[in-house]
């Protein structure tokens, strides 16, 4: 018996180690990216890679000063925040309707939303460009904010539907029997109960918009340019500016990583449109 348990002990330790290695493997490219932001130009190219070096802040001074990266951070923040809030404002009533009412074509409409969510940005970006031109909205924050609604609203509806459905309808009905209007019943009873889900949805939408590339790339130029499209700055006639690129990537991914870690409990349901509870 003792031999078995030693074997088991060893194999458990082995599996622990394996787990550790696997997770480290997923984390490593990110950590290496962050560390590269503090390297000099020739160090980023070095082969074999440099593991120990004198960190420099030069790349950060470069992007914060010369490239004015904060301007694009601000654009990204404004666009992602507004689009998220607008999405919730529009999607929550719709979600409530899908979750609480029986009506003809309910599932059909819900799936139509889902279908639109799947349309690749790149395939309609050209058409959206014409739309923007027609209404004189090219390179404006507002147009990007609106354009993202096309994907965000269906996402939010599918995400939140599960959260609403999970809240017993009896609670609302009891309140309505007590003379509460349906709106107030929703506002004071259901909404607080689904706050966690709403927060998770909001953060995930924020992350999606923050990272989005193809629409931002083709629908903005000077005023509304966002962080992901700044990669163009690094492909220059004086070579690829790897250091500033790594610094921008570090800066640009930082808020998102923090947000994601905050909502990690809801992350799985967020990834699956609420189909699976994390």
């Amino acid at each position: 018996m003792k031999r078995v348990s030693i074997g088991k002990f060893v194999s458990t330790r082995f599996l622990d180690l394996l787990t550790l290695l696997v997770v480290a493997g997923f984390l490593f490219p990110y950590l290496f990216m962050v560390s590269s932001a503090f390297k000099s130009r020739l160090e980023t190219f070095a082969y074999p890679p440099v593991w120990f070096f004198r960190p420099t802040l030069q790349n950060f001074t470069n992007i914060l000063g010369d490239m004015n990266i904060m301007f694009y951070m601000r654009n990204s923040t404004v666009i992602a925040l507004s689009s998220t809030l607008l999405t919730l404002l529009i999607a929550i009533p719709a979600t409530y309707s899908f979750a609480r009412f029986q009506f003809p074509y309910r599932e059909g409409i819900a799936y139509a939303f889902l279908g639109l969510q799947m349309v690749p940005g790149i395939s309609i970006v050209f058409a959206l460009f014409f739309v923007a031109q027609t209404f004189n909205l090219y390179d404006t924050h507002i147009f990007l904010i609106l354009a993202y609604l096309l994907w965000n609203i269906p996402y939010a509806i599918w995400m939140l539907r599960g959260f609403v459905a999970a809240i017993p309808v009896d609670l609302e009905e009891a309140a309505m029997v007590d003379g509460c209007t349906r709106f107030n019943a929703f506002r004071y009873i259901t909404l607080p109960l689904m706050a966690g889900g709403v927060a998770a949805t909001a953060i995930l939408i924020f992350i999606g918009v923050w990272n989005e590339f193809s629409l931002a790339f083709f629908l903005t130029s000077l005023d509304a340019r966002t962080m992901p499209t700044t990669i163009g700055f690094f492909m220059t006639h004086s070579g690829i500016k790897w250091g500033p690129m790594f610094a921008t990537a570090t800066l640009g991914t930082f808020p998102v990583v923090v947000f994601a870690l905050i909502v990690r409990r809801h992350f799985v349901s967020a990834l699956t449109f609420g189909a699976i509870k994390g």
Binding site: F218, S221, L222, I231, G232, F233, M235, T236, H237
Partner: peptide
């Protein structure tokens, strides 16, 4: 005011 971008992007 300069609007700076990558060359392919500028062309597009």
């Amino acid at each position: 005011t300069l609007d700076e971008m990558e060359e392919g992007q500028l062309g597009q």
